[in-house]
Every structure is written in structure tokens, then in C-alpha cells.
């Protein structure tokens, strides 16, 4: 299937000399939720801004639905909706007016029924005649989504959609995003809330210092880079790990009361059975055990740390 967005060798160097993107290659699949993870200043917003036409690239090519974003800007941009990171709204306009304005700006004829549907879906209908300046931060965030959806885009960019949003609203946002994906909209979201990517994304890209470090399916990423650890609470404290267990590279805690065994989740054999047998043979008993799996956050932190 043709990717809905194809980015090739995309670079951006600002007038100050700062290189925000370094030869990025990325494909976004139709109908997926793609999370672009990265620390502040990684290049996430620059990448989105180039695809949306707000920032000019220094080099490289971006195709949306197979069309070059510069040569076919009308077709391409009418397919895209953008929810910016900042709460940038027309303070003095009404919710209805500013949403209708966005629809017109993107070349769509007036459609009161569609605007009403969006405002109701985003719980803004009751506020339709209120000035934007009177809305709360959460409502403004939803209004930006309403504006971005007003022209019925096929691709939606959400730049840090839940930044500064409380937990309840964040969960509401996630439900909205899932509903959009179910309706066929491709969603690209940037976030530095790993929990958000873990919760929603089909695939994850990690970007740092303008370089795309990896792109993987979320499950595959966690399988591939995730570590699992088995912690055994010992019946009797140890001063050191016996030589017979050296091959397992066990970590003994400071009190000598527990050992931690780290194993590869993708390996054919985890080595746990052998470890327990060898511990029994060495006369080391245990009273409890539990396993831990590294989260997407751990993977992300490891990846970003290695680029520093």
C-alpha cells in the first residue's frame, strides 16, 4: 500500500545555522496512529511544520498521497488538518465563527451540519456562541481540534495534543483520537508523554537532535528493545553470587537479600529454568519472585541517552 506520507532525505537548517532535521526518511501508513517521540528541540514540530507547509525545507522531498507538497499544495493541504502545540486562537471570535472560518479557509463550502457534529463530538456545542477568550484551556485545546477537523481532513497532525491538559481531559482526547482513527483518519501525534504513545500508537518513531533514531511498531519495539528482569527474594542473605551462577550475570542487591536476572524476551530460551535448577543445586533457596518489563519510557530514555 502506498504510504499516505513519504518523507525522503528531509533536512532543515534555520537561518541561525541550527540544523533542526538531518536527512529524515519516514513513511506513514494510511489509517494508523503514528507517535513521534522526542525530547524538546528534537525536531518534531519542524518536521510537522514542513509537511503542513508552514516551514520551508532546506532539502529533501515530502509526498502526501503520492503528491509533492510544494507542487500540489492545494490538494495536499486540503487533506491535512493541524492541531498546533500552542493554544493559538482568535480570542474575539465565537467558537462557531472561528470553526466555520477554518472550513472556508481550507476550501470547503459552508456546512452547518458538519460543524455542529464536530462541536457536539468535542463537547463544545453549548459554547458555540461564546467568545474563544472565555473558554478554559482544555476547551481551547478541543476547539483547535474542531478547527483542524472542520474541513474533513484525511490526515491529522496533533502536536503535543495533551500538553498541559489534566488527566481526565487527556483520556477524553485519547478517546477522540481513537474515534478519528476508526473513522479512517491517519493520525500523527508528537508527544513527550511516553504513556500517551504507549496507550494509543500503532507505530512509534523516536527523534532526537534532528535524527530519526528508529521507527517500529509499538509492540515490536517493546519486544525488540524491551528487557525483562526476574527478581528473586532469597531465603538467606548472600555475601556474593557463587561462581557456579556467574554465567547468569546476576545482580545482587546491597543487602544481599535478592538477585536480579536480566533476560532477552526474544531469545529462544530465557534461561530461567536452568537458573532455578542451578540455584537449587547450589543450595540457594528463594521465598518470592516477580518479573518487570521495561516500559516504552525506559526504551525511549535509553535511546535518547545514547545519542547525547
Amino acid at each position: 500500500m502506498t504510504p499516505v506520507i513519504a518523507v525522503s532525505n528531509l533536512s532543515k537548517t534555520y537561518a541561525t545555522g541550527f540544523q533542526a532535521l538531518k536527512r529524515i526518511n519516514l513513511e506513514i501508513r494510511r489509517g494508523e496512529i503514528f507517535a513521534l517521540l522526542g525530547p524538546n528541540g528534537a525536531g518534531k514540530t519542524t518536521l510537522i511544520s514542513i509537511v503542513c507547509g508552514i516551514v520551508n525545507p532546506s532539502e529533501g522531498e515530502v509526498l502526501v498521497d503520492g503528491r509533492d507538497i510544494a507542487a500540489h499544495y492545494r490538494t495536499v493541504r486540503s487533506m491535512i488538518g493541524l492541531v498546533p502545540q500552542e493554544l493559538t486562537t482568535d480570542a474575539f471570535e465565537s467558537v462557531w465563527a472561528t470553526t466555520s472560518f477554518s472550513r472556508g479557509l481550507f476550501g470547503r463550502p459552508p456546512n452547518a451540519a458538519h460543524i455542529e457534529k464536530i462541536l457536539r463530538a468535542l463537547s463544545l456545542w453549548e459554547k458555540k456562541d461564546d467568545r474563544v477568550m472565555t473558554l478554559s484551556g482544555g476547551m481551547k485545546r478541543r476547539l483547535l481540534i474542531a478547527k483542524a477537523l472542520s474541513h474533513e481532513p484525511q490526515i491529522l497532525f496533533l502536536d503535543e495534543p495533551t500538553a498541559g491538559v489534566d488527566v481526565e481531559l487527556r483520556k477524553d482526547m485519547w478517546n477522540i483520537v481513537r474515534a478519528l482513527r476508526d473513522s479512517g483518519v491517519t493520525i500523527i501525534l508528537t508527544t513527550h508523554y511516553i504513556e500517551e504513545a504507549e496507550e494509543m500508537a500503532d507505530r512509534v518513531g523516536v527523534i532526537a537532535k534532528g535524527e530519526l533514531l528508529l521507527v517500529e511498531g509499538k509492540e515490536a519495539l517493546m519486544r525488540k528493545l524491551g528487557r525483562k528482569q526476574l527478581t528473586l527474594q532469597l531465603r538467606e542473605r548472600l555475601a556474593e553470587v557463587p561462581a557456579a551462577l556467574a554465567k547468569y550475570r546476576l545482580e545482587l542487591n546491597a543487602e544481599g537479600s535478592a538477585v536480579v536476572y536480566t533476560y532477552d524476551t526474544q531469545a529462544e530460551r530465557t534461561g530461567i529454568t536452568a537458573l532455578l535448577d542451578d540455584m537449587g543445586a547450589a543450595g540457594i533457596g528463594f521465598i518470592d519472585l516477580h518479573t518487570d518489563q521495561s516500559s516504552l519510557e525506559d526504551i525511549f530514555v535509553d535511546l535518547v541517552r545514547t545519542t547525547r
Binding site: 503542513c52 508552514i54 479557509l105
Partner: peptide
């Protein structure tokens, strides 16, 4: 000034 120019720049407008 307000930043809403992003919408104009990302719209299919010549």
C-alpha cells in the same frame, strides 16, 4: 502576533 497565522500558512490558499 497571536500565532494563528499557522492556519493561513497551512491552508490550500495561494
Amino acid at each position: 502576533f497571536t500565532g494563528t497565522i499557522y492556519e493561513l500558512l497551512s491552508a490550500p490558499v495561494s
